[in-house]
Amino acid sequence: MAKLVIDNVDLFYHRVQALRGLTLEVNEGEIVALLGNNGAGKTSTLSMLSGLYRPKSGTVTWGDRDLTTMQPWDIVEAKLLHVPEGRRIFSTMTVHENLQLGGYLVDDQKLVDERIERAYELMPRLRERRNQEGGTLSGGEQQMAAIGRALVGGPKLLLLDEPSMGLAPLIVKQVMEIIKEVQAQGTTVLLVEQNARAALRIADRGYVIESGTVTMEGAASDLRTNSKVIDAYLGA
């Protein structure tokens, strides 16, 4: 069982501390929501998991792998994929090329084509737009393309950074359903969100982080009814 364990991690950008003793776990097969406001350390957590930044102290393990010593491309090779904040679609490349890039490390071209086909089945809008440049898509379509691109890498663990950002409520719902479906097909998901309501609807468990440290954790159903969470993140 490949369990993700972040234990007592400190992370700095130059002199600014982004994570302070962060500790959390993601079990295989779960959707775990990571909630918090701007600057709480959500994106830093994901960037660290992808090998873009190294923690100053603490351990990060996934199964028997030590993620703090691996290069970003080795982490992708191990099937941990990251859908970054703001989608980061390659704007002058077509949707299809974007999806192909998701399979950059997959040597079997037939497998890549199969996975692209599955992504198109999951998100038919992408098939309609396959020859369009990524930059011409709507926000929701770009989010789907970004998720589809990561799926072509065949993720065992998928990190999603604010997939609902800037999307209309109806589209947010669609995206959340896609994420649920991805989990149903056997991928573990760590979902970073400011939209706590949408995230807790599909998550199994959740963490709330503030200033780089976990302040609350529990089953998603408990967090949804927790008065502090309601006041701080779910609004009226």
Partner: peptide, 21 residues
Amino acid sequence: REGRAMRSIALDTQASLLMGV
């Protein structure tokens, strides 16, 4: 595939890293 990776780095290096490039 390698050509695509080249173009992707030119567009967004960090996103390319996340593709495993």
